[in-house]
Design a protein around this nucleic acid. Structure first.
Lengths: 195, 195, 195, 195
DNA sequence: TATGAATGAGCTTTCATTCAT
DNA sequence: AATGAATGAAAGCTCATTCAT
């Protein structure tokens, strides 16, 4: 087993342990036991516990980042499918690796102020991207008037919570249906009452 | 100072410390120092660190629980205002005490599997309540067709995220506007594109 | 036992352990076992291992510092006795507490660059004081011509080595004789050969 | 590169690392990195860390040992120059290799009780040699009366301290001057006061 | 002969909790 | 009821040494 494989082996076992126990309850001993290596070996590949956790989270960020495509609003007829495609990719990226999703949406939250800032920063970036698209959409009349920032935040929250519940509860919805529900929710809400 | 006051004094200082530092970084020393009591005194009033944290979270749960009213769908003309009122009460309850909100939405998440279950259980209860109302609403034609459970989850997520961002970033939106934005979001989404 | 006594108890046991084993071989466990307290107790009273060691060394520095008197060279007839008195005080201070002497002259040397600088700085201070006195004495004709700094260094070395050997080998010379030998050495050397 | 050269290469790099960092702070990693060999290679040539350090110190002892010549006191007119020559050789041996001198006078001190004994033993041997010469000299009237052992110890201490200060502070005195100062010190001390 | 990945004993330090006063 | 000194389990991390290749 070469260094890259060994590293990967520790990383992926650590991911499982973090997902199962949470950051603090996950002991280095648990990780090395899961990976089947000695304690010292862990430190040959990772600076410390925090570093490997950060690497897992950063990797998930990166995966999510590449999942998101900019929506081209030039041709209004193609916007819906692009948005759908985005939702599909994000949902897929999160559900194909439940362990990291659980880590991202649960363990990484409230870890410490520094990490919280990191998470907030990532979501802020995604939020800004979304917000910019929404503002753009508002100009083109394909997004309702209203506070784009708040829309962006609520959209993120809705998707995060749905993913979290699916992962934590082990619910098994077909991805395509999830995508449709989300789209429907964003497109029309569900309340059919006059205010 | 009688027992109840002393207990309250420790509890409310603990809440601030947890909110500021997060569960793990909050030391018993920090709490007793903030409360101005001796270390041993803490244990006269609370079983252990976990217990006081749980009490804070439970208290918040209870406060939120009382904020939520059942929506009476008998008279459709009064449904919108009842929903609005519900949103208003929840938003108010969360924003009037940012410390516990931060604790609930951040520190309490991913603490450990047992606590996660507790949180999930609470959100499940709220979700079920919401879901039941939505199903009820669907029967009466005031909620769009679709998976009520998914609607409920996304609604919770949207509201939680919005509250979290407001609290963590210290954003200062007027409550009434927040209520309006949420209602609008739930009522009509924002995408105005044909699928 | 009050805090001061407890602190003293740990400090003096630590001193013995350091003297017996040397800094690195002295484990916190050895110290607390010697002091008869729990490991955690150690950290109630001292920042860390390094801190308690430094306190011991600093204390010895301080004791030595107070032992040294400035020599008043105004009245040449009283110089010899003042020098003798100084030697006597220094010798006495070092021999009355062999453990700290051993620590100072042995364990503290080469501990790490930062500590070495501290030691060098102390000896430099003493050396400067001695050198200044020697320069003063040279002006008054009671110290031979020559490099005062080198004289100071060799004097320090001679005394340190003598103390070290006495302490390490457990030799038992009467203090007064030691004082006389040192004085004699400084006053006339011992070689009686023409160069 | 043959075995002897490879061994020498590791040894001399280790010497530099020990001199720079001190025994404990010098890691095997530092040594092999400096020597440009793999970690395992180190253990092909040396038993362990302690062994290579001991070899360095022993080598220095040996070098010093050969520097010291017995003083022939038969012809009093040649004693001074023989003593001078001895001082010159010792000073030269110590100053030509500051790294080992620093190791000997600093890192090796207080390493642990076993090593301290070794050092004490070496200095005792040198001391005995010196003492014997002094006793011999006393019989021939070229060494002042007094405790020869104490004279020997103080002489060693004076020279050691001077060498140590020169090496540690990087002072640059001409060797010949150092020799003269030491001789002068031993021959006549510097105090010119009546006791 | 040389390598360097792997090992694990062993250390310091933290901190929730206890309990004698 | 209140104190705070004392506890000690438990954890992260280091690094000299080993050994399969």
């Amino acid at each position: 087993m070469n260094k890259t494989e060994r590293r990967q082996q520790i990383l992926s076992n650590a991911r499982d342990v973090f997902a199962k126990r949470g950051y603090h309850a996950a002991k280095i001993d648990d990780i090395v036991a899961a990976a089947g290596v000695a304690r010292g070996t862990f430190y040959l590949y990772f600076e410390d516990k925090r570093a490997i956790f950060e690497e897992i989270v950063d990797g998930t960020f990166a995966r999510l980042g590449t999942a998101i495509m900019r929506v081209d609003t030039e041709d209004p007829s193609r916007v819906a499918s692009q948005i759908e495609e985005n939702i599909r990719r994000i949902v897929h990226a999160l559900l194909e690796d439940p362990a990291t999703t659980k880590i991202l949406l649960s363990d990484a939250v409230g870890l410490d102020p520094a990490f919280d800032r990191k998470l907030l920063f990532f979501y802020e970036e995604v939020g800004k991207l979304l917000e910019a698209s929404l503002v753009d959409g508002q100009e083109r009349g394909i997004v309702a008037a209203g506070d784009a920032r708040v829309y962006a935040i609520m959209t993120l929250g809705a998707v995060k919570e749905l993913m979290y519940q699916l992962v934590m509860r082990g619910l098994d919805y077909p991805e395509e249906r999830i995508v449709a529900e989300i789209f429907q929710f964003l497109a029309a809400g569900y309340l059919r009452v006059a205010r």
